[in-house]
Amino acid sequence: MAVKWAAVHEAAKAIGELAGIAPEYRSPEIRNFPAIMRDTGGWRHRLAEQGVDDLAAILEPGLAALLALHGSGTPAGAAALALWQEFQTARAGLLALIPSLGIER
């Protein structure tokens, strides 16, 4: 899952560039998501793997279409922004799988 997670973020970086969005800071939670899920195991890990696969399946053709638009000289910013927002929403759902540490404040 770690390789696919990294590839998803590279695709998202390219989508963000096409949308005119500054590169994002990747929090430790984002960077370490595959390892956290591996260590968590069980249903959360299985769901995370499926979610990352699904996210990659969405981003791959979306990025290809955006690059084709961009290559033809057609503005791709609005479409890229829409795909970027979909990525953000889907990733937030995946990050919600991280279990709480149960630390009370």
Rank of each mutant, 00 (worst) to 15 (best):
P99W: 09
G42E: 06
Q88G: 02
D39Y: 08
T74R: 14
E86H: 13
E17P: 00
L83P: 02
R44L: 06
K13I: 00
M1I: 13
A22G: 05
D53I: 06
E24P: 04
A80V: 08
L95H: 04
V3A: 15
P61N: 09
I21D: 02
S100V: 03
P28D: 12
W43Q: 11
P61A: 07
A80I: 07
P23K: 11
A35N: 11
S72I: 07
G62R: 10
G42C: 08
A92Y: 00
S100P: 02
A35V: 11
L47F: 05
A96W: 01
G62N: 08
E60L: 11
V8P: 01
D53K: 13
E49T: 12
A96P: 00
G42P: 06
V8E: 03
Q88W: 01
R38H: 14
E60A: 14
L18Y: 02
P75W: 03
E60Y: 03
L94R: 00
W5L: 10
L59C: 04
G73W: 12
P28I: 12
A11Y: 04
E60M: 05
E60S: 12
A68I: 06
A19H: 04
L18P: 03
D54T: 14
L18G: 03
A12K: 03
P99M: 09
G16F: 05
I15D: 00
A64L: 14
I30A: 08
G51T: 06
S100A: 15
F87A: 02
G42M: 09
E49H: 08
T74L: 13
G93S: 05
G73C: 10
A22Y: 02
T40F: 08
E10K: 10
L47N: 02
L83D: 01
E49W: 07
G16C: 07
F87R: 04
L95N: 01
R31F: 06
E49Q: 14
S100R: 14
L94Q: 04
A90K: 11
E60W: 02
H70P: 00
G102Q: 09
I30W: 06
D53Y: 07
E49G: 11
L97D: 04
W43D: 10
A90D: 02
L83H: 00
G102S: 09
A92P: 00
A64N: 13
K13E: 10
I58K: 10
A22N: 10
